[in-house]
């Protein structure tokens, strides 16, 4: 395991340049260019605000903020898993022709999504400030920590699914519907109070739930997230990452032949 980490570290420049290339080429050719990175979440927020405070009034105070502080991290997670599962297949040219630690590809993909989430958070914090909703500085200190936990979780999932998709292409096509179902099983659009008591323990098995709840605690409720939420979140993040890497290592030897 130590050797793997060392090797990936040696290839950090490759990760860095892949991320840079993805970020630069994402909005290439558009008039507004990189501005879209900020414009996208802002426009989304406006749509949600209109829909949920005028048309579908939910019983939750400032529902658009309630939703948005969970939606931005969810989008990071789902796009990491969704797009990440194609990261190996999508680079078949490199895989078939040259050696590098294969983990670099999912890592670069998830990191790109992560950077996009950070940029979206600039908008989130800006909106919280401008609307006067405000924030709790002490609670905010926990934000980077929970982001790292989510990064580990997303990376673990991306490693797992990117390797599996090489052997089973259907996974790539099914991932869209899987992440959609996953979103409804995660308290992004609703709070956990809504979940019926008898399903609660089953529902809690979802590894993303504690992470999303922590984001909401920090930004919406302006509280320090509870230990009961944080500890399982960290544990799940680490376990999923290790599990993902073990599966990835096992499967990666056949990548060049299977692609």
């Amino acid at each position: 395991m130590k050797d793997i980490l060392k090797e990936i570290y040696a290839y950090r420049q490759m990760i860095f340049s892949l991320v840079k290339r993805d970020l630069r080429s994402r909005y290439k050719g558009s008039v507004l260019g990189f501005l879209w990175t900020f414009l996208n979440p802002l426009l989304q927020l406006i749509v949600y605000t209109l829909v949920f405070s005028v048309i579908m009034r939910a019983g939750i105070d400032r529902y658009y903020i309630f939703l948005f502080v969970a939606l931005v991290p969810w989008i990071f997670f789902s796009s990491s898993v969704n797009g990440g599962c194609m990261s190996i297949i999508g680079s078949s040219d490199l895989i078939k022709k040259i050696y590098f630690p294969r983990e670099v590809l999912p890592i670069a993909y998830v990191t790109t999504c992560f950077v996009n989430m950070l940029l979206s958070f600039v908008v989130v914090l800006g909106v919280l400030f401008v609307t006067g909703y405000g924030f709790n500085i002490v609670a905010l200190c926990y934000l980077p920590f929970i982001m790292i936990v989510e990064y580990l979780l997303a990376l673990g999932m991306a490693l797992l699914f990117s390797a599996l998709t090489v052997y089973l292409r259907d996974l790539g096509y099914a991932m869209g519907i899987i992440t959609m179902a996953w979103q409804f099983l995660t308290p992004v659009m609703y709070s956990s109070d809504l979940v019926p008591e008898r399903y609660l323990s089953l529902w809690r098995l979802n590894p993303v739930t504690p992470v999303i709840e922590a984001y909401r605690a920090i930004l919406y409720y302006k509280e320090i997230p509870q230990m009961g939420t944080l500890v399982p979140a960290v544990m799940i993040g680490v376990v999923v990452l290790i599990l993902g890497e073990i599966v990835f290592r096992k499967l990666q030897k056949g990548f060049a032949e299977e692609i």
Partner: peptide, 19 residues
Amino acid sequence: DLSGRENIYTNAAIFGLTK
């Protein structure tokens, strides 16, 4: 679309070289 110089960096990074 990247310049020759930028591609040197990307390509060399694939060989595992640091910046």
